[in-house]
Measured scan of single mutants.
Amino acid sequence: MSIQHFRVALIPFFAAFCLPVFAHPETLVKVKDAEDQLGARVGYIELDLNSGKILESFRPEERFPMMSTFKVLLCGAVLSRVDAGQEQLGRRIHYSQNDLVEYSPVTEKHLTDGMTVRELCSAAITMSDNTAANLLLTTIGGPKELTAFLHNMGDHVTRLDRWEPELNEAIPNDERDTTMPAAMATTLRKLLTGELLTLASRQQLIDWMEADKVAGPLLRSALPAGWFIADKSGAGERGSRGIIAALGPDGKPSRIVVIYTTGSQATMDERNRQIAEIGASLIKHW
């Protein structure tokens, strides 16, 4: 067993022997301040990774656009098919120029040779490549099948209805392509620590998230040296922004954090800054 596999296998073990965790309302004060600064709703939840206990939450059962955070769930569904012998990570998928959609920095470079399922998941999570996500959605049967996968996990809230990039439209009061912070946090925890996926697939999923290259201005910008984070960000229309993450000190994750916002007129930089400040408060009061 590799060191990384050992780390993920012992996530519940280490967490069980940690000192009790206590909620700190100071972080919620910052979440509410972010709402004021952005002029928009902000949803927040913080779960203990081992027990699933909610440590703090704000608007945990209000719907927010998922945006690209759905790509972690998508690759979880792909990995479940791999575990069941219905898919192979090494299978190569070929596609054409007509398949390319807006923001496809990886797939646009491989029109000639195609990409493997493993490479597509890596591109979808680490670079948020939209064509990679659409190609992977095709392998599982489309958005409705991802929703069905989530329902089978016990998540009857999260739903995907459309493809990239239309799913980022974020129309107010439109339930399409949305989740709730509580539902997303619980589902992410199941994917990373539950028995739904094999140990190898859980490790692969967290490795992809740990290698995320496009979430630097968010929670990662607030992390002290030595902290662990595996995350996936999302951005959408109407001032929408979000991030889902597993993080913790001492090089291992111990909490799940989900943050979503929508309806702001603020710039992307300002949305990023507010999420980073929430992260800084979380870490300060850990």
Rank of each mutant, 00 (worst) to 15 (best):
M268E: 06
F228G: 05
K144C: 12
H151R: 14
N152E: 15
E210R: 10
V214E: 05
A235T: 06
F64K: 01
L38H: 07
S233F: 01
N272D: 09
T138M: 13
I256V: 11
L120C: 06
V72L: 05
K109C: 09
E119D: 13
W208V: 02
L223E: 02
T126E: 12
A185V: 06
S122Y: 14
T112S: 14
T116G: 04
D161V: 06
I275V: 12
E119G: 10
D174R: 03
I283Y: 15
A34F: 09
P105E: 06
G43N: 00
G39P: 05
Q86H: 13
R202K: 15
A246N: 05
M180V: 14
A123Y: 04
R7Y: 09
T158A: 05
T193M: 14
A148S: 15
V31Y: 01
A170N: 09
R59M: 04
M184H: 02
R41N: 10
S2Q: 13
T69R: 00
E195V: 08
L28C: 08
N50W: 10
A15C: 15
I11H: 05
I93V: 14
E175A: 14
Q88D: 13
L136F: 00
I259R: 00
H110E: 07
D250V: 10
F14L: 09
P172H: 10
S80G: 11
I171R: 14
L47D: 01
N272Q: 05
E145A: 14
V72Q: 02
L150W: 06
M1P: 00
F6Y: 10
L136R: 00
T131M: 05
Q265W: 10
I171N: 15
H151F: 10
Q274D: 04
P253S: 09
M115Q: 07
R271C: 08
K53M: 13
S240P: 02
V101N: 07
G242F: 00
L55G: 06
A34K: 04
T267W: 05
P249S: 08
A40F: 04
I278S: 00
I125D: 01
F17W: 10
G236I: 02
V214S: 07
R81M: 08
Q204A: 12
E56S: 11
I3G: 05
D212I: 02
G76D: 01
E164A: 00
M268A: 09
R118A: 15
G39I: 09
E195W: 06
F6I: 09
E166C: 11
K71E: 00
F228A: 09
I259E: 00
N168C: 06
D129W: 00
A40N: 08
R92Q: 10
F6K: 13
A9Q: 08
L136G: 02
S57V: 10
A211L: 13
V29A: 14
R81L: 09
F13I: 11
I244H: 01
T193W: 10
R255E: 03
V106G: 06
T147P: 03
D177P: 01
G142V: 02
P25L: 10
K213T: 09
V106A: 10
G234F: 01
G43M: 00
G52T: 05
D36S: 13
I171M: 15
H151L: 13
P143T: 07
